[in-house]
């Protein structure tokens, strides 16, 4: 049973959400970072983290060959490691990825809507989205219009998300807030709710093109938002921190954050993802270390 919230005045609604105290939020996130995970739990956590990775390449220099290599790694990261959740590419590379991943169960995610700036007319963003879906993407990572958000044009941001969601059809929609440009945690909370109210299936921190990208505190605030949104509406929205998560140690800290904030329901690749490129290798190195008892080295994991 889901309840639908349809605020008549978005501004009043979003500004009526409880504020976020920056110092307190950062302290809570830092405290959860001190949780110590050992042995069996750590092993399971590493495998879970691998299954949550959206293996990403978003470079102007991307080529079909590069994307195919990445897809091969997504299927077989190394040893008996599980496959990752998705491969995330630009729309032009979606056909390549879809082909390479066919039958693997690995999702094809594509950034769309004039990623990363979002500075394009809406029809172009929608065409971008439809093209990616048509070519085989079943997950769309859209960027919100930060300019409109920061200038208070919440209705415009809302309507764009609704329109993109419609353009997605069956594909899942991840809404990138680009928290590094939102300046305050209050804005992160408001943007999270805005994206969820507009129908986003996931809320995602960052494009990876803006610093700071994902931080534990930003992710904490977003996890609180999905938790509270579920309590209010019954609908479960996923969270994806992206950018800047490079080590297994960091990834595990995020999993602790998920478990203690949103709850263990979210410890599922359908509800929590890491947007990352180099993280996977460190997860694999740590996994090998746990299996062999020796520290591994970069020569023993693949470069893609």
């Amino acid at each position: 049973m889901t309840a639908v919230i349809q605020p008549t005045d978005l501004r009043a609604y979003l500004h009526g959400l409880p504020g976020v105290d920056k110092v307190g939020a950062e302290q809570r996130a830092a405290m959860l970072g001190t949780r110590s995970i050992k042995t069996t739990s750590k092993r399971a956590a590493l495998d879970l983290a691998i299954r949550m990775v959206d293996l990403t390449t978003l470079e102007g220099a991307d080529t079909p060959g590069k994307v195919r290599a990445l897809c091969a790694k997504a299927r077989h990261p190394g040893g008996d490691a599980p496959a990752v959740a998705a491969v995330c590419v630009y729309p032009s590379m979606v056909p390549v990825a879809a082909e390479a991943l066919r039958g693997s169960g690995i999702h094809v995610a594509s950034v769309a809507t004039a990623f990363p700036s979002g500075q394009a007319p809406l029809p172009i963003k929608l065409a971008d989205t439809r093209a990616a879906v048509r070519d085989g993407a079943d997950e769309i990572d859209m960027v919100i219009n930060r300019g409109a958000f920061l200038s208070g044009r919440y209705d415009q941001v809302f309507e764009e998300i609704v329109a993109v969601k419609e353009a997605c059809g069956e594909a899942h929609l991840k809404v990138i807030l680009e928290t590094g440009e939102l300046a305050t945690y209050d804005n992160v909370r408001r943007a999270s709710w805005l994206a969820m109210l507009a129908g986003g299936d996931f809320i995602k921190t960052s494009t990876g093109k803006v610093q700071p990208a994902a931080t534990p505190a930003v992710t904490l605030v977003m996890l609180e938002a999905v938790r509270d949104f579920r309590a209010a509406t019954g609908r479960i929205v996923g969270v994806k921190p992206a950018g800047g998560i490079r080590t297994a140690k960091d990834a595990i800290k995020y999993l602790v954050l998920v478990a203690e904030t949103a709850g263990e329901t979210w410890l599922d690749p359908d509800l929590f993802r890491f947007g990352a490129s180099t993280l996977l290798n460190d997860l694999l190195l740590q996994r090998t270390k746990m299996a062999t008892g020796r520290y591994s080295g970069p020569d023993y994991v693949t470069l893609d």
């Binding site: 949780r35 110590s36 995970i37 050992k38 042995t39 069996t40 739990s41 750590k42 399971a44 956590a45 879970l48 999993l255 602790v256 478990a259 263990e264 410890l267």
Partner: peptide
């Protein structure tokens, strides 16, 4: 039993 158990870390 929860998936994500903290093992004792004395």
């Amino acid at each position: 039993m929860s998936f994500f158990e903290y093992a004792p870390a004395p």
